[in-house]
Design a protein around this nucleic acid. Structure first.
Lengths: 263, 263
DNA sequence: CACGCTTACTCGTATAGACGAGTGGGCAAG
DNA sequence: CTTGCCCACTCGTCTATACGAGTAAGCGTG
């Protein structure tokens, strides 16, 4: 016998309301969470508990949970229960993160930053290969047909948070250390500058959307978590686009921060 | 009698697969959409059609639709059908949109920009009042207790796309034109500079998340559409934070664009 | 003590049916 | 022709039931 629900924790239904029952239940759960009656990671009452408490059928309760899941408030674990989704630590990305002074010896910015924050960083799924440029990438790089693609996935404390691909024109990158799995100290931007492409500025485009099924898989996203899609183009002092970096981030793990002159 | 489904449009179920039936159906619909068999705004087969085609119960079909809805791919209209969600025109926000040279005479940046793009802009729900600063706003403005809040909602072609609130310290804004519904030509930034607060730089923080029920309502968001939450702080040349602007945008209506020096 | 089984509880998937409500076309009455 | 009603079709909500499968704790056996 599961302990009956503490009375007063959740209210009753209003049969006169024209708000659907499953919405009312979702409202009450949401409010209880917002008011701190349930904390991050807490287990919500089980489906059976709520069926009994409200006197509705199980599908109605499940329907309520699915609303909250869509809002990213809770997540269900098979065999365990439904839990208030904990907010993971966020990674702040500052707009000056690619400034020359931040290019570290050997380690990537991601590793250095995560170490400093006390988390355990990893990079995996590293893949470097030549391929046909997508129409979008080709347009951004100035009508190149084929590109060097560098793919990698970033994890914090075992959790995947970001999947990124850099695209570079073959005439720049082929045969250089950029085409190696390890691009060397300072990363590919340091190599680009050594190759005579002094970096002038970056352009970043930011979108947010729900993830594709493939993105859900690679980033192990809970339902109700959007992704931030960032496309950065690096320009050298000649005005040439020398790299396009396409990044998909778990939105609950990031805050982007930009500093802009008022000019 | 509804026309039977064109054969070949959707495949069959794989009973040997351990992928759930409703996921298989969602997969097939998603693929059909991706391949362009259904275009933006097209009506998908009705629930009854799919029940017949796949030989499953209606709840199973509805389950499939709810997956696609969560992904923001489709939306249901009561009494009409389920449709492929059209991608609305996006508004590009450039990082220099607050440069002095862009301060127009009289009209707000939003209006000017939208007019130029050929869409019909509106601003409503304008509300200007003094209130208690939230802890977050207070911290950003340097421990002020009360603030002037300017709220407004922006619409493009009748569709709400953004809801923004500016917070200003009372000692700066009280009694000035900033406290009036119409802040005058060039907006509140022009007024701030006239009041001796020459703007030095902005800081913008960007998050993405699923909307709260209140945000769904004010922005009339379809399910499966996240919001972009942008918090901008304006600093004057003395280093003082003179305004915090909290903006919630429908993510499917925006692309943010930043230009960064490589330093 | 250690291992494996049982059992109770959890959510996941699927069925079948009922009624409600929004939409739009067709048809009949005026 | 116009108006208004009806009806067919659509999705929305809710019930009741069944079985499957993951989890964890208890219990008995070796």
């Amino acid at each position: 016998m599961s302990p009956s629900l503490p009375s007063g924790l959740l209210g009753d239904l209003d049969p006169t309301s024209d708000r659907a029952v499953f919405r009312q239940i979702a409202d009450q759960l949401r409010e209880a969470i917002d008011r701190g009656r349930f904390h991050e990671g807490d287990k919500l009452p089980s489906e059976a508990d709520l069926v009994e408490h409200y006197g509705v059928s199980r599908m109605t309760v499940r329907n309520s949970f699915s609303i909250l899941q869509g809002e990213g408030l809770v997540h269900a674990e098979h065999g365990k229960g439904v839990f208030v989704r904990p907010r993971p630590p966020v990674r702040r990305l500052a707009s000056d993160r690619f400034a020359r002074r931040h290019r570290e010896q050997g380690k990537s910015a991601f590793i250095v930053e995560a170490d400093a924050a006390g988390s355990h960083p990893q990079v995996d799924s590293l893949e470097v290969k030549e391929e046909k440029a997508s129409p979008d990438v080709s347009a951004r790089l100035g009508s190149v047909r084929r590109v060097l693609a560098r793919r990698r996935r970033y994890l914090l404390d075992g959790r995947p948070v970001e999947f990124a691909t850099s695209f570079l024109p073959l005439d720049i990158a082929r045969g250089t250390q950029i085409a190696e799995p390890n691009p060397g100290p300072g990363g590919i931007y340091a190599r680009l500058e050594e190759l005579g492409h002094r970096l002038d500025h970056f352009e970043e485009e930011i979108r947010a959307r729900m993830p594709s099924p493939a993105e859900v898989k690679t980033l192990r996203l809970a339902s109700g978590v959007p992704v931030i899609h960032l496309i950065r183009t690096a320009f050298d002092t000649e005005g040439r686009a020398v790299e396009v970096c396409d990044t998909v981030m778990a939105a609950d793990a990031y805050v982007l921060s930009y500093q802009l002159p008022a000019t």
